[in-house]
Design a protein around this nucleic acid. Structure first.
Lengths: 118, 118
DNA sequence: AAGTTACTTAAGCCAACACTTGACTTTCTG
DNA sequence: CAGAAAGTCAAGTGTTGGCTTAAGTAACTT
């Protein structure tokens, strides 16, 4: 049961990271963070065809990062924060574990610690 | 100049998200979070060939998520937290912006707000 | 009604990916 | 020294990804 939950989570994490690994899809997210936009507007922003944009939007919607609603003939897209949770949780979980470990093993990884800015 | 910096950052973000979008690479990260491991150990964990594992490790090293050192004939891999910064910064930046916007536009997105758990 | 706009869907193209196998190189071990 | 162990490198294979063009459909506009 826990296993099953984790599997589902893994798939969600897969989808979100994959969605966000593409520069054009990140550009869409950044644009929608400012305000909702239509499909054509997003296509113009990316400099690709509307068809390509629709495909990106499908990926973003499947990972619950974007939602959209069609009224009349124009589809308006907006951010849907739901999808971010899993990915962010995973990142944070790893980073927290790393930092704990790094604190404890400071000496072992001391080489890096010497380079101040890193 | 700012533009150039952002471009570099975009490429780094690209690499990290792509690295982390693969379930096997995430499994490597999770394993290394507990302790360093050899290439063979990681291969056994994933159930793929050593060659495939080496390829994953190259991706992880290019995105500065993992570092490794070879002593004798065995290569020991460990976590390198450097690569996480850009990706995490991007995620946090977006999420923060979304939340601000969601607070302001609560009424517009009210449908979702009504569904308590989301 | 005819044309334009906004999107949708399907098909195909080419590059990138995740693997594999097989041929090495290097480093231990008996 | 012979052989096993640990990893490296190169080539090949099947799949997926991002993009295009082309052919729709539905909703405005004139």
């Amino acid at each position: 049961m826990v296993k099953r939950m984790l599997k589902y989570e893994a798939e969600a994490v897969d989808r979100v990271f994959h969605a966000v690994a593409d520069a054009n899809r990140r550009a869409i997210i950044e644009r929608l963070t400012r305000s909702p936009a239509t499909v054509s507007e997003l296509a113009a922003l990316l400099g690709v065809t509307v068809a390509a944009t629709v495909q990106h939007l499908r990926v973003l919607q499947d990972s619950e990062l974007v939602s959209s609603e069609k009224v009349g003939r124009v589809r308006t897209c907006r951010i849907d924060p739901a999808g971010l949770h899993n990915a962010e949780a995973w990142l944070t979980r790893q980073r927290t574990a790393w930092e704990l470990r790094l604190d404890r093993l400071g000496a072992v990884l001391g080489d890096e610690a010497k380079e101040s800015g890193r």
